[in-house]
Design a protein around this nucleic acid. Structure first.
Lengths: 226, 226
DNA sequence: TCAATAGTGTCTATGAGACAGTATGTG
DNA sequence: CACATACTGTCTCATAGACACTATTGA
């Protein structure tokens, strides 16, 4: 079955407008991506179609609410993927998104699972390329923005934050230097509370000053090539 | 007239897939953007429609070849703009591109002109937002990539390069520091030639090692907020 | 010789990695 | 007490801004 479409002027038009989402989280120090099983055992990104009366970001949120019981969400557009033949069903451009969610987010159906984002997988369609774009994007923005706000709990310790940052950047950070530099971004503020979840001295808790996408103060930090 | 479309499954589909291009160059130390006159005296970006058998970047190149006698070109995708109602003609998502061309590029028709990219203009549709995205993108990438390869001639002096970089970053650079840092990116190489276009000591010529999009060696350089 | 531009060398402030050492909790 | 984790302070190197000084051309 091959979908086609024609517009009121008589010219061929896209058969649909798709959205796909690269949903990332950090679990046990590892960066995981949400995938749905596709035919032939290939991995596919969760996705769906945009309706005429919604914008692509809204469609992405709607699709993810169906796939997961999501609590919070950081969402931004990656770009359009529209190479001819990318979708075997017809001329269907896809607008890809990057989404970050807390590690407790659970898939709603057993066809949807978490897999290692840096692992080697057989991907459906052009999804390998989309995942690649997502990983590049998040690494590039990690120290310049509050992207990690999507993964961390509302209040978090600097150790928790360090684990998340390390998983995303695929490196290790010195604890002291990490704390100094994350505070210097101006993106977080102390809550005045402490946590006693772990043995040892209790850690002070912080929160991001804003949960919507924001940029830091222009400090620099290098992410090694991944 | 309002365009509509329906696909072979009976669902509404986009009436067309558009491409728009933010075409930038540096002329007389100023960053200019290519615009076409639109109804009501508003500025519009050059654009067109994607056909089913081409990818968006190819469509952008095709459209620009019609609008200008372009010689070289740096092109990259900015993203999809698909808010409902963005185009009064119907449901028409647009894939926006950033294009950099040499300053000698001339419009082919008298409806197309260069205007100051940082100036205040009345823009058609959502084109103000697209231009904003283009300026953010090029400033962010300036010192990390070879974006400027699209504007500079094949062989150029460091003074020429400095003028281009200054116009894009909206700042001034110390000549000595600029030369040191641009060489340190590893993106350019000396040609061994010199130029005598200007009074004073002849300048050594350089060229970018590659004309396709590439990333520098991780040196840093701050672009002031614009 | 002077004006004008190109290029070299160096001083300094700051960002960021590394790590010693101190603080504060639990068993 | 030992142990584990959190946090402070400081040394050091690399980056990048600023600028004095030298070099090379044409008028």
């Amino acid at each position: 079955m091959f979908w086609t479409a024609t517009n009121s002027e008589g010219y061929p038009s896209p058969a649909a407008l798709a959205v796909d989402a690269v949903v990332l989280t950090v679990r046990d120090g590892r960066l995981d991506v949400l995938v749905v099983r596709s035919d032939g055992g290939r991995r596919a990104l969760p996705g769906g179609f945009v309706t005429p009366d919604e914008d692509p970001a809204g469609a992405a949120v709607r699709v993810l609410e169906q796939k997961t019981a999501l609590t919070r969400l950081y969402l931004e557009q990656l770009g359009a993927f529209a190479a001819p033949g990318r979708d075997p069903r017809g001329w269907i451009p896809s607008i890809a998104h990057l989404a970050l969610v807390p590690p407790a987010t659970q898939p709603n159906d057993d066809q949807t699972t978490w897999v290692n984002a840096h692992g080697r997988h057989r991907w459906a369609f052009d999804h390998r390329e989309i995942v690649r774009a997502a990983l590049d994007r998040i690494q590039g923005k990690l120290w310049w923005s509050n992207v990690a706000v999507g993964v961390l709990p509302h209040d978090f310790s600097l150790s928790q934050a360090r684990q998340v940052y390390q998983a995303i950047a695929r490196t290790t950070y010195d604890g002291a230097t990490f704390a100094r530099d994350l505070k210097a971004t101006g993106l977080i503020q102390p809550t005045g509370q402490t946590t006693t979840d772990s043995p040892g001295r209790p850690a002070a808790l912080y929160r991001y000053t804003t949960t919507s996408p924001a940029w830091g103060s222009g400090r620099r930090k290098r992410v090694p090539p991944g």
